[in-house]
Design a binder for these strands. Structure first.
Lengths: 253, 253
DNA sequence: CAGTGGTCTAGACCACCGA
DNA sequence: CGGTGGTCTAGACCACTGA
């Protein structure tokens, strides 16, 4: 007897395999906010019933999302929506090292917080429609390790996606700023693209970082994305390249 | 009846699951050179017989190695040892872009090729035992796109791991240099670590790149590893940061 | 102890490849 | 057409969690 596709939306005769469809459905539930960060998903058996497929198929879908760090499986407990905890920051999205080889997790001081209309260039980067007026938040931060400045950071966020964001909510959170996006606005960053430029410090950057004008700096631009490849953050960091560097890995078993 | 562990070396009662042991065994075969780059592995059914486990278990092990880009599966054909082809270079280990956003695959000109004794610092980076004399190859290259210099590159290789390497073999190959390591010396790079520094061009680098002294440069140091986390290459690239930048991605579905 | 995810089996059918 | 990997099922047992 053929499987009934109507009830669940999963279709064995579709071009995509069932476990890919499971993946899509779970991503859709996450994008819709049905399951929120930190929350437990239904068990694999329950999902298998709900979607009308075998447990193996559910596992295949969940496995890919777990590999992407979107879900977290805990044996004996359940499967959970990943959170941007401090521990997670230690191994993802954090690549600044001092030049003597110590990984840096800088403190964040919020210097300014403004709401304004997005310039065309920024609107384009954040995927906002041309020809319309879009509010954005513009944040300026100083990142420092101990008393030493590490980087000047500017963050631009599409205003409509971050309801309820305030300077206060950012200042009070000791956490990774992506945890603030999650907890305050329900925005989940799952992927980033970075461009790393070498440059010379201009007067304002030099003053902020307490280095000489024309000192070498690393300008790191990042676009962060949530589900469905939707850009949610554009940030620029100006790192003091005299004291710090950037590391990446690739490949590996 | 319990599985017999002696014959194959796989042991259901070991702390590692069987599919991890499969993975280890395959990596060992690769490190031993039993299966060479581009070569086809035995079929999953044959490996299942050989290791005394189910096909599913073989698949689980191979899947992880395929995700690490160490093996390549081709439906209807078989499973193969990955090669460092030009196509592969396009999506792995190549991150230089011009500042107007075009990905750069520079040409390589070999300027010098020397064999010498490794200084202590280099020996340490390449994991060579202290207090012994180790031959290394030291290569200097100019990377350029069209007529424009992109970067000066220095490569250091542990001499004993690269028998038969000559300036000629590198000059004649139009391929990715990692393909030369594979084809000439049987060395497979599977993972790299990179450190990205911002700096100012000194006189010699400036002359090579045809830029002004104290122009901004990106100094990219890379250590490349083969199986068993064995370092096989240390390279330093000095990129003209006025015209080029570096990109990385992280995360994603 | 019951419930979770983790591993593993034996087998089925499919899609793709090349002779 | 036979052989390959790709997907999927049903079911088993294990390891870990927390009440």
């Amino acid at each position: 007897m053929p499987r009934k596709p109507a009830k669940t939306g999963l279709d064995i005769s579709a071009p995509d395999p069932l476990y890919k469809q499971v993946e899509e459905r779970i991503l859709q539930c996450l994008a819709d906010g049905e399951w929120k960060p930190g929350q437990q998903l239904p068990t694999e058996t329950q999902l298998a019933d709900r979607f009308g497929v075998a447990v193996f198929t559910i596992r295949a879908g969940i496995s890919e999302l777990a590999a992407s760090k979107i879900l977290v499986r805990k044996q004996g407990k359940g499967t959970f929506v990943a959170r941007h905890s401090l521990q997670r920051q230690r191994y993802q999205f954090s690549h600044v090292y001092s030049n003597d080889g110590v990984q840096i997790f800088p403190d964040r001081a919020l210097l300014s917080f403004a709401k304004e209309t997005a310039p065309d260039a920024i609107a384009g980067i954040l995927g906002l429609r041309r020809g319309e007026r879009h509010p954005i938040y513009r944040l300026n931060c100083l990142l420092s390790a101990g008393a030493k400045p590490v980087a000047a950071m500017e963050i631009m966020l599409p205003g409509r996606m971050f309801p309820g964001l305030t300077a206060r909510s950012i200042r009070e959170a000791q956490e990774n700023i992506y945890a603030v996006y999650q907890d305050v606005c329900g925005i989940n960053v799952i992927r980033v693209e970075e461009r790393i430029y070498g440059a010379l410090a201009k007067a304002d950057t030099a003053a902020t970082l307490k280095i000489a004008v024309n000192s070498p700096i690393l300008r790191v631009e990042r676009i962060a994305y949530t589900y469905k490849d939707l850009p949610v953050e554009y940030r620029i960091r100006m790192l003091d390249a005299g004291k710090f560097h950037y590391r990446t890995d690739e490949g590996g078993v």
